[in-house]
Amino acid sequence: MHDPQKDDLKLVVKGVTRTFSAGRRQLEALAPLDLTVGQGEFVSLIGPSGCGKSTLFNIVAGVDTPTTGAVAIEGDWQGERAGKVGYMPQQPLLLPWRTAEENVMLGLDVRRVPQKEARQQAHELLKRFGLLEFADSYPATLSGGMRQRIALLRTILFNASFLLLDEPFGALDALTRITLQMWLLDLLESFHSSVLFITHDVREAILLSDRIYVLSARPASVLRIVDVDLPRPRRQQMLAEARAVELEQELILLLMKEQPL
C-alpha cells in the first residue's frame, strides 16, 4: 500500500531506535520502528503511556537524534530536520509575557519576519479562526481550550505543511475536546496539512485519522496499522456507525493487552 522508498511521502521513519543511558542502566525507548506519513495524510499514534511516543516526536522534529535508523522529511534523508516541522509539544508552552497574538507569531519572529508583517499574519489567522477577541489577552487569562487553540495556531503559522501534535487535547474536558477536534479538522482542511498526531483516546484517533499506528509498550514498536475508511468531512456522529464502533472495540482490546497490570 505505502512504499517507504517513495519520495512523495511527507515523512519516512526507518528502523529508528533510541536508547537513553541513565547512569549505568540502558533504557530502550524505541525498538526499531518504521512509519510513514503521506502528503496531506492524518496519521495517529496510540500506545500506552511512557512507550516512547514523545521520544519519536523529538527525533522527527530534529530536537533529538536516533541511536540507529534514519528519518526523511520530503525524501531528504540527510538534511537538518529542525525548522521543517510545526511541532506542538505535550504542554502548550505559551509564553506568559506575550499576548495570544504575540504567541501566535513566535515562529515568524524566529524566522526573522519583520514585526509588522508577522503581526498582520498572526492577526489574520486569529480572525479567520474566530479568536480575534482574545488577540490581546495574556495566556494566564485564557481557558485551557483557548490556550490549546492559540498553541495550535502558533504551530501552524510556523509551518502548516507538516504538523507534529503531541496529545494536544489530552488535558481538556470531553465537550471542549469535541469542539476542538472539529475546529482542528476545519483548520487542516484549509491548509492541506500532513499531520502526525499522538493521542491516548481511541475515539479521537478514529474521528480524526486516515491511518492509525498502534504501538506496543516500551520499547515502542508497531503492533498494527489500521486504515480508517470513514468519509470526509468527518462528523462526531460517525463514531456511532457500526464500522467505527467495531474499530474502536478492536483497538481497545489491542491496547488492553499492552497495559501493565
Partner: peptide, 10 residues
C-alpha cells in the same frame, strides 16, 4: 521543553 520548542523552530 520550551528550549526543545525553540530548537524545533531552528
Amino acid at each position: 521543553e520550551l528550549m526543545k520548542l525553540l530548537h524545533s523552530m531552528r
